[in-house]
Design a protein around this nucleic acid. Structure first.
Lengths: 204, 204
DNA sequence: GTCTTTTCTGAACACTGTCAAGATGGCATG
DNA sequence: CATGCCATCTTGACAGTGTTCAGAAAAGAC
């Protein structure tokens, strides 16, 4: 049994994660009950406890799945972007925000605060997308003849700006954007921010 | 009765908000129960429903209080900063993150997603801190002989970066920072990001 | 003094996360 | 094949939750 065993149900571990994901499409993360997930998987309320220690662990699994999906989408977007040019970073950032806007509840689960220390599962799953960012910034620096520069502050700034605009578009106080006189939809605002960020990075 | 009336309890509206705030100091936002708040206020479980339509409305009140507090702290930090210089903006940003780090649960309540449209109470309360940001960026532009420039993309970028680093420091996958080789505490990371941001804004 | 309105309590409902005890069925060993 | 084992699932329970509703109690109006 390489993966989870296939006993009575088949693969309940997988089925529960999928059921949770489906419910997150419509419901919000805060109103996602373990019992509802079990119901959707046509299983009793206590069944999940043979595959996850508690609700948090299911959410961790869902979060990990989300990071994998996010990574693949960012990677695809970066590959489609203009090679070498800074458009690569901007495309990655746009993909990040696009994911958040397309799957808001899932995204919030990915960044929900774990009770104690963060689950190592989630940390491990989020590692590749972070690596993608690091790699992108470093490649961009090399492409701009600034390979010797310390990349770390720029990495922090990029992640903060991208993650921040995603969060603000999801949960931020609404009506801030219109009040600015920008009548753009959310995706366009995200593009504007990533573009401004890229400009500001390039400007020396 | 200009404010909330003082009937049986005195001012239960105020007392409930205070009790909620106290509980948020130790508990996390997700484990804050309306019943526990009522208990802390020495009142039956149903009493809050005469002052708030539901739990969400209490949280909205707590969130609004948070934005007021945040605004005062940012304003104080900006006034203490070097006049005219760009340090004003950086100080404001640092104060923003400092608030988030000092009151993480409260901060999360302020930016939690409301069920439907955002509560107008929260929107109104968050307006002044947004105005502080707008004003700061515009003043900074004037101080740099760039008054004619469109401030809006910069405003978005600043808010996104500041809010983003706050969120990442609170809920982000841990062990990202050490993996970067930066052995700084959270506050120092926040300062680094705001400083990098200010640099990048100044660089033309 | 009554009368009314606001505030609070007590009990109830449906729901939640979680656990202990038993039923069920696949697996390997005899 | 029979046997036993053990992972899996169900049933039923417990404490706790948000919310509602009928009534008690207290404050203000007349």
């Amino acid at each position: 049994m390489l993966f989870r065993p296939k006993y009575h149900h088949g693969d309940l571990h997988r089925a529960l994660v999928d059921a949770g994901l489906e419910l997150l499409e419509s419901r919000d993360a805060s109103e996602l009950s373990l019992r509802a997930v079990a119901r959707k998987a046509k299983v009793s309320a206590a069944a999940p406890y043979h595959h996850f220690a508690n609700k948090a662990e299911l959410l961790d699994a869902i979060a990990a799945e989300g990071f994998a999906l996010l990574e693949s989408q960012i990677r695809a977007a970066m590959q489609d972007a203009d090679e070498g040019c800074g458009g690569e970073l901007a495309a990655g950032g746009a993909a990040y925000v696009q994911f958040a806007l397309a799957h808001p509840s899932h995204f919030r689960v990915m960044f929900r605060k774990g009770e104690e220390e963060h689950a190592p599962v989630v940390d491990a799953a989020s590692s590749p997308v972070f690596a993608l960012l690091v790699e992108g910034v470093e490649r961009w620096l090399r492409g701009h003849e600034r390979a010797e520069e310390d990349a770390r502050p720029l990495i922090l700034l990029c992640w903060a700006a991208i993650h921040g605009i995603a969060m603000l578009l999801l949960d931020g106080p609404s009506s801030r954007w219109e009040k600015l006189g920008l009548d753009l939809d959310k995706q366009a605002i995200a593009v504007l921010v990533t573009r401004t960020l890229a400009e500001r990075l390039t400007a020396s």
